[in-house]
Simulated assay, not measured.
Amino acid sequence: MSTLTGRVVIVTGGSSGIGRAAALGCAKRGAKVLITARRRAQLDEAVADHPNIEGFVADVARPEDAARTIATAVERWGRLDVLVNNAGAGAILPLADASAATITGIFAVNVVGPSLLTAAALPYLEAEKGAVINVSSTFGQKPGAGLSHYAASKAALEQLTRCWALEFAPGGIRVNAVAAGPTESGALTGMMGLSSEQAAAVEDQERQQIPLGRRGRPEDVARWIVRLAEPGSGWITGQIIGVDGGLALT
């Protein structure tokens, strides 16, 4: 359980769901972990999970927060080994209801934010032969009605993963992604903006569609993020690993 001892990890959107579980998994394996979120109260709750976790208020959609986030980790611990681009935005958004602001907001978090964070992290990741792990979605490859802009942003993130893997390989930086299926993370009532009743209906539909018969737990996805962060995955790059109970097959 000490496979990440001495390493420094940043997890964006680390105060809940998959990000929080990934941060805890890395911390338990010895890493120093900086988690980011927009709300201090949620950060404080997640920081209490483990003494190796510290919080930093930042918004992935704000370009100026990218350099601040990377600098905070380096100033505290002197290095950066792993960047987990987990923070996400989305909406169940029929095209007829889409506005420029909503579309731009989704891409600001899911595409622009990870790009700026990764660019700011590059010198430090190259110094440590580190890794970037992007958190995508089954819908980066699987179409879904009302999910066009969310799905398109995740497809873009997956292609960024492949391109960056080639671009950064000469510097020894690995880049991979985990494509998560529906998880019990509160995203439907939070990120997707559904009512409790609407979310329950969607969850039931998802359970029926997922071949393994259940929605995921954050830990189901997080363990693959942790695995990709570990030195044992040192010969894996440019991969999109689906963790979705088989949903992508339907």
Rank of each mutant, 00 (worst) to 15 (best):
N86W: 04
Q209V: 02
S153F: 05
I241Y: 12
V11I: 01
R40N: 11
L194P: 12
S115N: 04
A177E: 05
I53E: 05
Q209F: 01
V243G: 10
A37P: 10
D97E: 14
T102V: 14
G25A: 13
A87T: 09
L125K: 09
D81P: 06
I103Y: 04
T72M: 15
P143D: 08
R68L: 10
L43T: 00
T183I: 02
A37D: 08
A67I: 10
V221C: 02
N52H: 09
A71R: 03
D44V: 11
E197G: 00
V135N: 13
E197Y: 03
L166V: 15
V57T: 11
W224K: 04
A108K: 04
T3F: 10
P94T: 04
Q209L: 12
P51Q: 07
L125Y: 13
E203Y: 07
A48R: 05
L4Y: 01
R20E: 01
L122T: 15
Y124S: 13
V60A: 08
R29T: 06
Q141V: 11
P63H: 00
V84C: 11
T250F: 10
N52L: 00
V111H: 05
R62D: 12
R39A: 12
G19N: 01
G242K: 15
S136Q: 07
S233W: 06
V47Q: 09
A89D: 07
A180W: 03
T237Q: 11
I92G: 06
T138Y: 06
R79T: 08
V109E: 00
V8N: 00
L228R: 05
A101M: 14
V84F: 08
I210W: 02
G181V: 01
T104C: 11
S233Q: 09
A151S: 15
A58W: 02
N86F: 04
A200W: 12
I35G: 03
I225S: 10
A177F: 12
D244L: 06
A199H: 13
Q239N: 13
A61K: 07
L194E: 06
V112K: 07
R68D: 01
V243K: 00
E167R: 13
D97W: 03
A66R: 00
R215P: 06
V132E: 08
Q159A: 14
W224R: 03
L147R: 15
G242D: 15
V57R: 09
I35V: 06
